[in-house]
Write a protein that binds this DNA or RNA. Structure first.
Length: 197
DNA sequence: TGTAAGATTCTA
DNA sequence: AGAATCTTACAC
């Protein structure tokens, strides 16, 4: 499959890119194994005007990579335990990023993996940790491959999980997931299909 | 140097 | 519903 190019990550609408990422495959070379995981759940975080975003208070040591040019990963430690993986998008100076909340193994033999139905779970399953933050997604070690775009009838829209502290911004419908996937981390009763928007 | 708060997960 | 667990950010 074709590797996603720099141009894909440089798009300036992070909410749109979060939708486009559904169905695409994360390829991660680790321990001599090429892990291939299909993205089934994402959340968009906007650098500007989004209190839920780590960059809303400006640049810090942790979030510096979010301000860099799109096409890198931003991985941080959550609750002292979980390594959460984000895809940085847009041009340099704009701190947009997309959290990958759930994936499913591509190959049948990969189902030996531990659970991959949560943002902290899937990174643990393949040994992807915060020491890889800033890593290019156009590298041989870590990259995404393209897949046919999904239709609006297959995509569910939702509010983002665990960001109540963000007040009004917590209401933004910026979480997306593949409805038919068994690996989605959480379903809310108010979620709806993108085609019904 | 001290402290409060997590983009979560697991258990009771 | 509550604990686990520790880095990060920011106040003093």
């Amino acid at each position: 499959m074709e590797k996603l190019s720099k141009e894909f990550y440089l798009q300036n609408n992070v909410v749109s890119v979060a939708k486009q990422l559904l169905g695409k495959v994360i390829n991660y070379q680790n321990d001599g194994i090429l892990h291939q995981l299909k993205i089934v759940e994402t959340e968009a975080y906007r650098g500007f005007n989004d209190k839920a975003c780590h960059a809303s208070g400006g640049m810090t040591k942790r979030n510096t990579v979010m301000f860099m040019e799109g096409g890198r990963c931003y991985i941080y430690l959550c609750y002292g335990i979980h390594h959460l993986f984000n895809i940085v998008t847009n041009s340099e100076g704009t701190a947009d990023a997309i959290l990958v909340r759930a994936v499913e193994p591509v190959n049948q033999s990969d189902y030996i993996y531990p659970a991959t139905d949560g943002p902290g779970k899937w990174t643990k399953a393949i040994g992807l940790k915060k020491d890889k933050t800033g890593q290019s997604l156009i590298s041989d070690e870590l990259f995404l491959t393209n897949m046919p775009e999904l239709s609006d009838e297959e995509i569910m829209v939702s509010t983002r999980i665990g960001v109540d502290y963000a007040g009004k911004d917590a209401l933004n419908p910026w979480r997306f997931y593949i409805n038919e996937s068994e690996f989605v981390s959480k379903r809310l009763k108010e979620d709806f299909l993108l085609s019904e928007l």
